[in-house]
């Protein structure tokens, strides 16, 4: 959803009265107080066909990915690709800087041809000496990619989340487990979905959260 689709309040447009009375929904949360119930709820929600779901818990819950049907993340492949890029960069950097066999075109100015440092009497093409540089660049590319790609994939930094307006939800950092269904889910219907979650075993409460 783009920002343009969002109704902007306070503009000169005359909005229909119903739109103001029925604000946009963010989703709903269902509250549980133990791991087994939240796992059961996640299974039930997945089996009911909901896709845009999430679980909020005070600590990592083993098996929750399978219960929610979360697909394996693409992050390792991104990290692998960037690690290989780092390795290639390191190899090219060291070889270009030091080695004397690279075919450098004549019109490249002399200053950009690489230095051919004589270090410790070693040959210019000393792969053993290049490996620390190649290794470090591989690590650096992979590590930074892992962190920042994780941010991007998680849509971080997110300055606020509508869920946090719910007082009940604050216990997600303490002793409660919440299952959340996003309003953008194709199957989402405020009343039916709330009823469905409410009837799950162990559900203590259901709250529908409004967007903005």
């Amino acid at each position: 959803m783009t920002a343009i689709d969002t109704p902007i309040t306070g503009t000169g447009h005359a909005e229909p009265a119903e739109a103001a009375a029925e604000p946009k929904l963010f989703g709903l949360i269902g509250e549980f107080d133990n791991v087994d119930d939240i796992i059961g709820a996640a299974n039930a929600v997945r089996e009911a066909g909901y896709k845009k779901t999430d679980v909020h818990s005070p600590f990592p819950v083993h098996g929750i990915d399978d219960a929610l049907g979360i697909k394996p993340t693409v992050l390792p492949w991104i990290v692998l690709a960037m690690g290989l890029t780092g390795m290639t960069t390191g190899l090219l950097l060291t070889t270009y800087t030091m080695a004397d066999w690279l075919p450098i075109p004549e019109r490249v100015p002399e200053n950009f041809e690489g230095y051919k440092f004589l270090i410790s009497g070693k040959p210019f093409n000393s792969l053993a000496g290049f490996i620390p540089v190649i290794f470090e660049l591989t690590i650096m590319f992979s590590a930074y990619t892992a962190v920042f790609a994780m941010f991007l994939l998680n849509k971080l930094p997110m300055m606020s989340n509508p869920l946090l307006r719910s007082k009940r939800f604050r216990r997600a950092t303490d002793d409660r487990f919440f299952i959340a269904i996003d309003a953008r889910d194709a199957q989402f219907d405020a009343e039916q979905s709330a009823e469905f979650v409410k009837n799950l075993p162990g559900c203590l409460a259901v709250e529908v959260i409004e967007d903005e």
Binding site: V35, D36, I39, A42, N43, H62, G63, I64, D66, A67
Partner: peptide, 12 residues
Amino acid sequence: TALDTNVWAPIH
């Protein structure tokens, strides 16, 4: 034994 996620959910 809690590493056994089968307690809660089937693993495929």
